[in-house]
Nucleic acid binder design. Structure first.
Lengths: 340, 340
DNA sequence: GCCAATTACGCAAACGCTTGCGTGGTTAAC
DNA sequence: GTTAACCACGCAAGCGTTTGCGTAATTGGC
């Protein structure tokens, strides 16, 4: 037999040989097992320290059938929202002695499948995933289910019946945003929303309408326009809103980028920001506070906390605190933050 | 013996039993080994497909002493610079069939050590690390060296003699930035630099001076001011620059945030951006294009490409193309990008 | 028709560790 | 003095896979 790799790392066997005891005794001594005499325990632990012994996790993973690793699959690692989420995931995984295996799909379904496959082969204990925009086929997740690898979806959640998920409801935050504007005296409030088929757009619109009805104001459909989130689309939307007979004094924009584009358009129209017109947005990015005219407030979606929550949910399942098929959907509330 | 985990996953042994052949034959058949007959090969592969067989990577990792995993340790996963780098790392790792194990130090030396320890135990094949701000002690990296786990440092590089590293030289980009301004006719160019002890500040200053001397202009020390990167510090710096007897018409700022703060200060002084005063910055963030007054140009540091380069360097070592101790320092050039 | 080469497969060890069970030896209770 | 309880340790199997070597059976060249 050829020794494939001689990493030179000392093993339990080595220690056993040197001390003339069995490997099982060494193993137990290293684990502080009660059935090992204090003398031998001490001798083993000392020699282990001297040799710089370190347990071979790959052997343990293999033997135990558990890897203490969670796979995390996201569309884009570099997007601010997701990288905050990763940060939250890593932090809670770390403090529970789990490690994190990373993969990004770039919104490509094929790559998504390959990564899931790879994670399955790596025998991750569980997965946290945010699906790609174009993913229509969910069979790769079905395979995970069959392999008894629990999955927690977050933010971008597939339309499937029995799943664990964590997401953020933008409706409540939108209600707060509109409330805020109403309290400031605004009565004609526009909204630049995203593509209508998005859940995120629906939640925004719903929040808008709920806030109005709460204040017994009637809803004017003309005040919500759908845009494509490009600068040009935003300009077009602004143009529409500003052309209405009722003078729009505030606008809720789909996200911070849209807000900044909208601000630019408004400036071109010689409008004074926060005077002639006020903007409220959604905090997908941490940058708005650095711009010349940040939105007066924005709806925080707590990506870091979502990451934490998803990880905790997954760990709960892995620790057996919650049954594998006790499917749970956690919906976090978004919250308006004022930009003072 | 208790079977610790019955994942239910079919094994090579299972296939062997069903087909009444030996495990070694199955293994070889699955690997398309030439010494296996076509008939048996086909039978094995078919049954494997039927059973949904998937090789147990943990077993292979263990047996081969290799994990095809690289550990990546960064200060903050959510910072734009690092998350872009991660993206680059993951992409090239993925296309070389490696996976990525993640950890963030939060600039905490103790946590950094623990993560390195954990990665060592996980038997990662190699590491890519950007050290924390406060890390003074490098013994944890010394342990990696002893364990023969190669490390490539990037961006934040420790001051050690024999290491692999990838970093970006800001001097050349700064030269280009000042060149750009000079060609536009600016003659009095200020610089808001960062804390003087930072390498990054030194490189910026060096580039500034080199550009001037290239154009046979003499360097006025008053034109470079160090700031603390806060909004207040930036305002103070701007105030200093604008109070000089020679009229400053352009300013190179430490990064985009500083640029945006500086723009705000300039606006308050009723200066017209890109007319009375022009800004050039460094592209730590992708947001500047969304602001009302983005800097006219900025120096790109290519975090994604740095991540790619670091990964390629590491893979080169792992594949034996480069010797473990053939230490290499790759310094990438930064580059000015115009914001059209 | 003999030897060599080739084909097709099996045997078994090895990777490092955990753990159920067995077994001497000592102690204590009655 | 017998039994029971414990203490301290060793044996060996087993996790799933790879791989060097051995060995039959077949083929081909002369």
């Amino acid at each position: 037999m050829r020794k494939v790799v001689s990493s030179g790392q000392p093993t339990i066997k080595e220690i056993a040989k040197r001390l003339n005891i069995s490997v099982s005794t060494v193993s137990r001594a290293l684990h502080d097992h009660h059935s090992i005499g204090l003398r031998t325990k001490a001798r083993v632990q000392q020699l282990a320290a001297e040799l710089g012994y370190e347990r071979n996790q790959t052997a343990i993973f293999f033997q135990q059938g558990k890897t203490f690793t969670i796979g995390i699959l996201l569309p884009e690692l570099s997007e601010a929202f997701f990288s905050s989420a990763i940060s939250g995931i890593e932090d809670t995984a770390y403090s529970n002695n789990y490690t994190v295996l990373l993969g990004q799909s770039h919104d490509d379904e094929a790559r998504e499948k390959q990564i899931i496959q790879s994670m399955k082969q790596h025998r991750v204990d569980g997965c946290i995933v945010s699906i790609g925009k174009n993913t229509r086929n969910y069979e790769h997740f079905e395979m995970l289910r069959q392999a008894k690898i629990p999955v927690v979806f977050f933010d971008r959640i597939p339309d499937l019946p029995n799943i664990h998920s964590v997401s953020c409801n933008l409706e409540s935050g939108t209600v707060q945003a509109v409330d805020f504007l109403l309290k400031k005296g605004h009565r004609v409030i526009g909204m630049i929303n995203g593509p209508e088929q998005l859940v995120a757009s629906k939640e925004r619109a719903a929040g808008y309408m709920r806030a109005l009805s709460k204040h017994r104001l009637k809803y004017d459909p003309e005040l919500i326009v759908s845009a494509d989130l490009t600068a040009a689309g935003t300009a077009e939307a602004m143009k529409q809103l500003l052309s209405l007979k009722r003078r729009v004094t505030a606008v809720v924009t789909f996200n911070d980028y849209v807000a900044m584009d909208a601000v630019q358009y408004a400036l071109k129209q010689k409008l004074e920001i926060n005077k002639d017109i006020t903007f409220v947005s959604y905090a997908n990015t941490p940058v708005s506070s650095y711009t010349a005219y940040p939105p007066a407030a924005s709806v925080e979606q707590f990506p870091y906390e979502q990451g934490q929550a998803a990880t905790n949910m997954l760990l709960g399942i892995l620790n057996g605190e919650r049954a594998f098929n006790d499917y749970q959907r956690l919906i976090m509330e978004s919250q308006l933050v004022l930009h003072t």
